[in-house]
Amino acid sequence: MTTDVTTEAPVAAPAAPSRRRVVAGRFLASWRGRAGLALLAALFLLAFAGPPAAAWSFEDRDFLAFLSPPTAAHWFGTTQSGADVFVVTMHGMRRSLLIGLLVAVVSTAVAAVVGAFAGYYLGWTDRVLGWVTDLLLVLPAFLIIAVLSPALGQGAWLVMVGLLAAFMWMVTSKMVRGLAVSLRKREYVLAARFMGVPGYKIIFRHVIPNMSSLLIVDATLNVSAAILTETTLSYFGFGVRPPEVSLGGLIADGAATALYAPWTFWFAAGLLILTILAVNLAGDALRDAFDPASGGARR
């Protein structure tokens, strides 16, 4: 008499989700993340796909409709020169969004490199970079940009990106330095150093990647700060110069006619508010996704 003994194959344990999936799940689980992401996507789509869908171009002028209110022909009305407010506003929002993104990326990258090198090498490297950082912190950034603005010339908005980024990285670099001082003592960093890996490679391969959560959140929040700063400069005539336009310049131009032609002012101002709101919502949700203890339980 024989007895059949069947053995079941061991069931493999499910693989643990990666940190990227966990962060993405927390971000999308937050109403702030969903609302901010959806609003940002809608604003980008409107800024880049809106002007081609309109019947008027940025250079067109309707000489039969000066300061015309919103109509089927001009969705946002027209300006004093007959320009279509919708097309002009979309061009301005496009420029403001690009400036905000570029300034955020550049300033965060500079903060990461300066802070990581200062915290990893310490010594004279730390002192020199610390002196530069402290000096830039006490300089009046608004006045310096305002003085340099007339020399930029027309359409030099990329130079404005560099000027804004040059004064937005210092505080983050100090936080990065503190993290780098801690990371330089970790086992994987010490092992790489004992294997003869150069210091700059250790910084870019091990130190900076291990503080990516801080840098991503910082870059996200810097977008709104850069847009607001550029808008303020443009409002006072020190930012983007003609023939380029931005939301700040459009708000400044529309302020003179806001009482009797409010469409020249309120559409640009409203889109600026929506842009800042969307970026801040996404930034708060991203911060909570990386650090649930900071408030990730809120929905």
Rank of each mutant, 00 (worst) to 15 (best):
I145G: 02
M170H: 03
G119F: 01
L137I: 12
V114P: 15
L139M: 14
G178S: 06
A151T: 12
S149P: 09
V128A: 12
W169I: 09
L137H: 07
A180N: 09
V189M: 05
T172I: 12
V181F: 00
R184I: 03
M160S: 02
R177G: 02
G155C: 03
W131D: 07
L183E: 02
A180Y: 03
P140D: 06
W157V: 07
V114M: 13
W169Y: 03
S173R: 11
V128P: 05
M175H: 13
A191S: 12
L137V: 12
G119N: 11
I145P: 01
M168R: 15
G155A: 07
R127L: 06
V159F: 04
G153E: 08
V171H: 09
V176G: 02
R184F: 00
V161T: 06
A192R: 10
W157D: 09
L129K: 12
R184G: 04
Q154F: 00
M168I: 00
G130K: 03
V176Q: 02
T125V: 15
L129M: 15
V161A: 07
R127I: 11
A116E: 03
V161S: 04
W169N: 02
M170G: 08
L179A: 14
M170L: 05
L179W: 01
W124G: 13
G162V: 10
S182A: 14
G119Q: 08
G130A: 13
G162P: 05
L183N: 01
A118E: 07
A165Q: 02
G178Q: 01
K174F: 00
F117M: 12
G178I: 01
V113W: 14
Y121H: 11
G162D: 04
L139D: 04
L164V: 07
L143I: 13
W169K: 08
L143D: 01
F117I: 11
L122Y: 02
M160K: 08
L122G: 13
W169M: 08
L148M: 14
Y188E: 07
I145Y: 01
M160V: 09
A166T: 09
F117P: 04
A166G: 06
V147S: 05
T172S: 09
V147N: 05
W131H: 07
A192S: 15
R186Y: 00
L135K: 05
A146K: 09
R186F: 00
L136C: 04
L137D: 01
T172M: 06
S182W: 03
L135G: 14
F142C: 00
G123N: 13
W169R: 07
D134K: 08
V181K: 11
A192T: 10
L152K: 12
V113L: 15
A191D: 07
V189G: 05
R186E: 09
W131C: 11
V181E: 03
L122F: 00
V114W: 08
A146M: 10
D134S: 11
L163P: 04
W124C: 03
G153L: 07
F167K: 10
G153I: 06
G162R: 11
A156R: 14
M168D: 07
G153T: 11
A118C: 13
P140H: 06
L135A: 12
G162L: 15
V132R: 11
R127Y: 01
L143S: 14
P140Q: 05
V171F: 06
V114Q: 10
I144W: 00
L122A: 15
M168G: 14
D134I: 06
S173E: 10
W169V: 06
A146Q: 11
Y188I: 05
A165V: 05
L137K: 10
L158W: 14
A165C: 06
W157C: 03
A146L: 13
V161W: 01
